[in-house]
């Protein structure tokens, strides 16, 4: 394998840097996000402002692609039910 083949892509390096820019001393973990994501999704759907606690959901979703994938699927369900 050529050395350049082993390099992280600029997107992957960018992902690390982006993760660092979003890092806070206190964050929700995935379990806490799951506990609050339904409230966050309903606020988003109704264009309602989010409170301080569920704002942490938004920060976690920006960092966690899996929770974001599940949130987007939840929004798909909620929109289908409207």
């Amino acid at each position: 394998m050529k050395p350049e083949d082993k390099r992280l892509t600029s997107e992957q390096v960018g992902s690390i840097v982006k993760m660092l820019s979003l890092t806070r001393d206190r964050e929700f973990n995935c379990g806490e996000c799951l506990q609050h994501v339904s409230e966050f999704a309903e606020c988003q759907l109704a264009n309602k402002p989010v409170g301080e606690i569920i704002a942490s959901v938004e920060q976690h979703l920006a960092l966690c692609p899996e929770c974001r994938e599940e949130y987007e699927a939840l929004m798909k369900i909620l929109k289908a039910g409207q």
Partner: peptide
């Protein structure tokens, strides 16, 4: 017992269902 009523019950339950499904698929 963990449902705290801050969203509709069905939204809360769907979030759990999606977590179950996506976790298994991954």
């Amino acid at each position: 017992d963990q449902f705290q009523g801050r969203s509709k019950f069905t939204t809360w339950a769907q979030a759990i269902a999606l977590n179950v499904a996506f976790t298994e698929l991954r």
